[in-house]
Nucleic acid binder design. Structure first.
Lengths: 341, 341
DNA sequence: CTGAAAGCGCTAACAC
DNA sequence: GTGTTAGCGCTTTCAG
């Protein structure tokens, strides 16, 4: 049996690591038990100096490295976390991941990234990876499946959400309702009575909150409401350009646009310039994130501490592992006034 | 023994999946052998209809999910690949990952991301994860360690590089030397005799190639050379702003700047505008990547198919797994002429 | 301080 | 078609 398997691996896989011993071989060469060798590799106490040395030497000689998969199986965890997000090319998620990765490396936790493209199935694959113990937990930056679907995996491990969720999950979030209220109030004070919205999608906790704040504000101040003024699918610079073109075609135009992403606002502003539309004279623009590009183009933007969210989400994941699995953290926003409103 | 372990897990970890059976229990409940159950879960042939059904039902009843770590250990691979890159917040890498992730999901390969921050140690950790079999292979988008260090891990699994490397690794790359030559030639034709460089770093295959092209071109055309004109550490918009400020302080100023990133060029161009410096009159600017921001700001840029590189790198990884582990692919670039030169 | 041995849960060779 | 069983390589309990 040994033979067959060995030969098969040789044939199938040149990376069979044939020259890499396992802990048993190391132990044998060092003249100690497997237990002792294991202790040495894990820095456990109560091993004599000389045995430590013998084991280290044997390991060196055999070019030994732990097979981490065996460790994972034996320990029942993987020291890794899955990050679930829709798109990797949007600056928002890049920034977010950057913050998270900085924390994760400190804790020696590895990162498994699941780009869902907002496909339900892809997101469920990520959830499955929790159930199958590929990752110890999940951080869902943005989701597409209903919360009930997510909840079904709740018992399989910590799941951190990044939205204002009532209970059942640890989460880090922005009060988008409040932020939008403030933003709309600010625009109103500037004299805008008709305001349009550029938003990612109509679903999703964050989007729903934002739309709600929008509708509520309009009603409260008896401002104009027009379904045509809600532009969805707005993620990128190009989407902003598209919005600007649509705006131009509108018979009844809003005098201000509130976008949920700086990229979109950037597209709007630059396309406006090309079309000789005066910002903020003909159209005021305000966006979210306060990403460097907004400063660059001098776009008024609501600062969202994206990187910090990534960091916090990771910390919540860690706390969740320790049993504190219902913490919710709200992060603050503030408006950076610039020239586009 | 069973007892102790069980209780310990209950105490330590609420996510012990107590209600989740393993394949043995499923097999028992279904009244079949473990092998048969395994066959069912892996879609292997030669299992009778009824047994398939029995196994499926038992699995359902026990809320069974494969423990993927056991699979990994048993099979000797993990169906995952590690991506090594310095920074997750730079659009370049986001774009790159996006392309890669799209391919990976098709093949059911999961992504482990290693953000190194260009710290040698973090990069080595990634390499170790290959050796410890945490990932089946590595794609190094940009590295900081010497090639010899990487080579030492060559036998542990496929390692795909993204640079023009002589041999020993599969790789996908851009001929940066040629691209820069063309760019510099273009600037020269526009009458520029003194050209500055904004580059990531002085090391790294790609940077070295670019600097070499720079020096060679200057020499060839007897253009001015001034070490002060080489700005390093240029990655972001803010770095571009910094460069612009430094440029202004220069006694002897280059009349053109060639940047390796659109972000940097964007910073330069917008800061120039603030300082009432005419682009391209006082200073011509050209950059690399042709990221949407360059179109936005109408910056002349060398198009680099970043997303495609991500895709190709992944495909090379797959081919490498299949034994074709020395393929090198060159991707083409082309200049998008806009208003900054 | 040390070691024997029983797991962890799945795969697959081999025998029937 | 199906089942038995020996791995995969490490951790950890328990008994010295």
């Amino acid at each position: 049996m040994y033979e067959t398997r060995f030969i098969a691996r040789l044939l199938l896989n040149k990376y069979s690591g044939d020259d890499m011993g396992n802990i048993r071989e190391v132990a044998k060469l060092a003249g100690v038990s497997v237990t002792t060798a294991s202790r040495v590799f894990n820095g456990h106490p109560y091993v004599s100096e000389e045995k430590v040395k013998a084991v280290m030497e044997a390991a060196e000689k055999l070019n030994y490295t732990k097979n981490i998969n065996a460790v994972h199986l034996s320990k029942g965890r993987t020291n890794s976390v899955g990050i679930v997000l829709p798109f990797l090319h949007l600056p928002y998620y890049g920034e977010w991941l950057h913050g998270l990765a900085e924390e994760a490396i400190k804790e020696g936790i590895s990162l498994q990234v699941f780009q869902t493209n907002y496909q339900k199935k892809a997101e469920i694959d990520a959830l499955q990876s929790l159930k199958s113990r590929q990752v110890d937990g999940l951080i869902i930056v943005s989701r597409i499946n209903e919360i009930e679907v997510i909840s079904a995996f709740r018992e399989d491990g910590p799941i951190v959400l990044c939205e204002k969720i009532e209970q059942g999950f640890p989460s880090v979030y922005i009060d988008h309702y409040q932020a939008f209220q403030t933003a709309l109030e600010t625009l109103r004070e500037k004299g805008h009575q008709s305001i349009g919205l550029c938003i990612h999608r109509k679903t999703g906790t964050n989007s729903i909150e934002r739309i709600q704040a929008y509708r509520d504000s309009l009603k409260k101040f008896k401002m104009d409401l027009n379904e045509e003024w809600i532009f969805t699918g707005c993620y990128t610079i190009n989407d902003g350009i598209r919005v600007m073109n649509e705006w131009e075609k509108l018979k009844n135009r809003p005098t201000a646009l509130l976008a949920t992403s700086d990229q979109v606002a950037a597209g709007i502003v630059s396309e406006a310039k090309k079309a000789a539309i005066d910002i903020p004279g003909d159209l005021a623009v305000m966006s979210c994130d306060n990403h460097p590009i907004s400063e660059l183009l001098d776009i008024t933007s609501i600062h969202i501490p994206v990187k910090e969210m990534g960091r916090r989400a990771f910390k919540l994941f860690i706390r969740s592992l320790d049993g504190e699995d219902n913490v919710r953290e709200k992060l603050e926003t503030n408006i950076f006034m610039r020239s586009t409103i």
